[in-house]
Amino acid sequence: MTRVDIFLLEAVINGILLGGVLALLALGLNLIFGVIDVVWICYAELVMCGMYMLFWLHVFFGWPILLACLAAIVGVAGLGALLHLLVISPILGSAPINQLLATGGMLFFLQSLATLLFGTDFRNIGLRLPVIELGDIFISYSRLLAFGTALIGAIALYLFLSRTYLGIAMRAIAQDREIMGLMGVDQRRIYLTTSAVGGALAGLAACLLVLQYDVHPFIGLSFGPITFMICVLGGLGNMIGGFVAAFIMSQIIAIGGYYFSIEISYVLAFVFFIVLMFLRPQGLLAR
């Protein structure tokens, strides 16, 4: 194997690992879209909030990392529920674009609030996990951990949606909102629960990302746009489609980054997205 091939292989593996976290984010966004029919433009900013929570609890207050993670997941779940109660539920009946924009306003709000509270410094949690050597290939342990946890999170979500009453109701509500009441389902409670679960997924993603990236108020912009593309590519609300799309996009970014630069790789991913939208406007897996 030549040296070049090994670096390429490393890029591919890292792409797969990155795909896991992106898939987790896409799952959360798709869940919220599928059930409530809104797109949370500020979804990645919730991740940012989670990363800050973790940072402060662990570094500043000295909480053990696992406890801090748990607190961040619960905290972001609460933020998600709050976002629904304060911003989404008053405008459930208005034009979809207004809902989109209200959450877009939250994006500005959360970014600036983070700047106000924490400044624009890049903050690192100071946890360095070892690097695994597989022959000539180096894989960071934190990425592997992130991938594994994301996969477990995805499986847990799948089981929740297919096995529990609440989960089945969440899938049903996307098909026929009006008659859910006849089933004894209180729509408002389902929406609130969904928002909390979506928030919890963002919180979980925050725990995984904080191991690899520094926190700063604008970190959301590094994940937000690509997550939307993934969701649309997979078909908005289509969980499996989003899951597949996450790995395609992360490969484009990883391999593009290897051959060109990181910006070019993102441009490639976005161009791929636009082209695919024209070939399959209803999503990759649409029939």
């Binding site: 009453y165 089945i168 109701a169 899938r171 049903a172 098909q175 026929d176 089933m183 004894g184 389902v185």
Partner: peptide
């Protein structure tokens, strides 16, 4: 709920 199985439809009924 056309995209749910018969059994899942019944489970929704027992929510």
């Amino acid at each position: 709920f056309a995209k749910l199985s018969v059994e899942e439809n019944l489970r929704i009924g027992a929510f």
